[in-house]
Amino acid sequence: MADIKYYDVLLRPVVTEKSMEAMSDKKYTFLVHPEATKGQIKEAVERMFEGAKVSKVNTSNKDGKTKRRGTTSGKTAKTKKAIVTLTAESKDIEFFEGM
C-alpha cells in the first residue's frame, strides 16, 4: 500500500441533490483516494477544514466499468466515495456554503 499524505486523500466533493440535502445533518460527501482508510479520511478532513471534528466515516467502493471500442476493451478507473459525519459542536465546512 502506498504512503498517502493527508492532502492526497480528498480528491473532490460530490455535489448532487442527495448530498446537498444530507448537509443539513452535517454529512458531507467526497470522492477519495481508492486506497485511503477511514482513519486517513478522518485525519484529512480535520486537518484541511479548520474546526471540523469528525464523528463517523462511511465508505463505499465502486469498481470500474468495462468499456469497449471496437475489438479493444478496457476498464474505467475504480472510485471510492466517503460520507463524513461531523459532530454536533463542530463547525460546518465553508467550502459548501455557497452551493
Rank of each mutant, 00 (worst) to 15 (best):
G51Y: 11
A44D: 07
H33D: 12
V9L: 06
V14S: 08
P34A: 09
T71D: 08
V14L: 09
F95T: 04
Q40F: 12
G51M: 14
R12Y: 15
E21W: 05
L86S: 11
D92T: 14
E35W: 06
V54M: 14
E43W: 01
R69V: 04
K38H: 08
T87Q: 15
I93V: 10
K42M: 15
G51D: 13
F96W: 05
M1K: 01
A52T: 15
D92N: 15
K78T: 01
K27P: 06
K78V: 03
I83Y: 04
S60E: 13
N58L: 11
A88H: 15
S19K: 01
F96I: 09
Q40Y: 11
A77W: 04
L86C: 13
Y6T: 02
E94Y: 06
N61F: 15
T66E: 10
E94M: 07
A22W: 05
R68P: 02
V57T: 08
K27R: 15
I93S: 03
A77D: 08
K26C: 11
A77L: 07
A44Q: 08
T71Q: 10
T16A: 00
D63H: 14
K42I: 06
K91N: 14
E94C: 06
S19Q: 00
V57E: 10
S24W: 06
H33Y: 10
V32I: 09
H33T: 00
L10A: 08
D8L: 03
E17L: 06
S55T: 11
S55F: 08
K62F: 14
E50F: 04
T79Q: 08
K80D: 02
M23I: 13
I4W: 01
E50G: 03
T79R: 08
T72V: 15
R69D: 00
S90F: 12
D8M: 03
G74A: 02
V15I: 15
L31G: 07
S55I: 08
R68F: 00
A44G: 08
K56Y: 11
V57N: 06
G64W: 13
A2N: 09
K80H: 02
T72E: 10
V54I: 14
L31A: 11
A82Y: 01
T59K: 13
E94R: 13
S90D: 09
G39A: 07
E17M: 05
E43P: 01
V45Y: 13
D92F: 06
S24L: 09
D25L: 14
D3Y: 04
K67N: 00
L10S: 04
K75Y: 13
S55A: 10
E50R: 12
D25A: 10
A2T: 10
D25V: 02
A22Y: 05
K62M: 09
T37P: 00
T71C: 03
D8V: 00
Y6S: 05
V15D: 02
K62V: 13
D92C: 09
V9I: 15
V9K: 02
T85Q: 14
E50I: 04
K81W: 01
P13I: 05
A88C: 06
K65D: 06
A2R: 14
G98V: 12
K81Q: 11
A22I: 03
Y6N: 01
R12E: 15
E35H: 08
R69A: 03
K56D: 12
S24H: 13
G64D: 11
T16S: 14
K67Q: 12
F95Y: 15
D25N: 09
S55Y: 05
N61K: 15
E50T: 07
M99K: 10
K38M: 06
K56A: 13
M20R: 15
V15Y: 01
L11Q: 07
R12V: 10
V9R: 02
